[in-house]
């Protein structure tokens, strides 16, 4: 129909009387790093949650290659190729690094109980392990395989969160504020990882409220303010866009 890769179409989300996201539409092209930014309370995270299946939108649709994914539960969205990460370092802290990534391989190597009891899943287990190690190597975590995820450094935990998502072999990875609490050095390394991830063929949509981190990273940027689309374009356009500057510096025009 629309022919777009990931198409967010007239999304609306109301919480009681509050309209958190109001008629939002934008398109994410395949192979892009797409940023969704805006001041606090702009509705970025709500949008993000609707795309990932965490919320069911009040109206509107999200389509991936013309298949509707909005309104599906999160695991169904994941199975259709859109996998999210979480804010902060949401990991299986009590499990080893390898086990964390092995959970990520769940979709490609669907475990079976009977096969597990009779030992018929040796091939799947080997495949899952190879896939997991591949993802760990990609993010430079192969040396920490046996460590508990909770004991990794902050930067490594973030990378592990992305490794878990990558192990699922998604078409799109949704990153929720990946730079929060990172020092400049860690931010730089994280950006390199994202470029690498994009070059491996995965489309990235990230939510971030830090303008600076996103400028050097994104191919395309969507700016939201008060639940609405404010501007869209490349980093240069956005940087000089008068509405964006005003929204971030706090002009009076967009209030209410």
């Amino acid at each position: 129909m629309s022919g777009h890769f990931l198409h967010i179409d007239k999304l609306v989300m109301r919480f009681g009387g509050l309209t958190a996201v109001d008629n939002l539409s934008f398109v994410v092209e395949q192979g892009a790093i797409h940023g969704l930014i805006g001041p606090n309370g702009a509705g970025k995270t709500t949008t993000f949650n609707m795309i990932s299946g965490f919320y069911r939108p009040t109206s509107g649709t999200v389509r991936l290659r013309d298949g509707v994914i909005s309104g599906l539960p999160m695991h169904e969205v994941a199975r259709r190729g859109v996998v999210r990460t979480f804010q902060h370092s949401t990991l299986f802290a009590e499990l080893s690094v390898l086990d964390n990534v092995l959970v990520g391989t769940h979709m490609n190597f669907r475990p079976g109980i009977a096969a597990a009891i009779f030992g018929l899943d040796a091939e799947d287990r080997r495949g899952a392990r190879a896939r997991a190690e591949e993802a760990l190597e990609f993010f430079g975590l192969l040396d920490f395989t046996g460590e508990l995820a909770g004991e990794l450094s902050h930067g490594h935990q973030r990378a592990l969160g992305m490794a878990v998502a990558m192990a699922a072999q998604p078409d799109v990875i949704l990153l929720d504020e990946p730079f929060t609490g990172m020092n400049p050095e860690e931010t730089k390394r994280m950006m390199e990882l994202m470029f690498k991830l994009r070059d491996s063929g995965i489309t990235i949509l990230l939510v971030e409220h830090d303008m600076h981190a996103i400028m050097g990273l994104c191919d395309r940027i969507t700016v939201m303010s008060f639940g609405k689309l404010l501007a869209e374009g490349g980093p240069q356009e956005i940087r000089t866009h008068p509405d964006v500057i005003e929204a971030y510096l706090g002009g009076g025009r967009h209030v209410a």
């Binding site: 979480f86 009590e94 499990l95 475990p111």
Partner: peptide, 24 residues
């Protein structure tokens, strides 16, 4: 088995497990 690992995953972080495609 991987099934057992998934049980653990559901226990510790059900949202993250779900985002990896696990029907919690």
């Amino acid at each position: 088995s991987p099934v057992g690992l998934t049980f653990h995953a559901v226990h510790w972080q059900d949202k993250l497990a779900q985002s990896a495609g696990v029907d919690v």
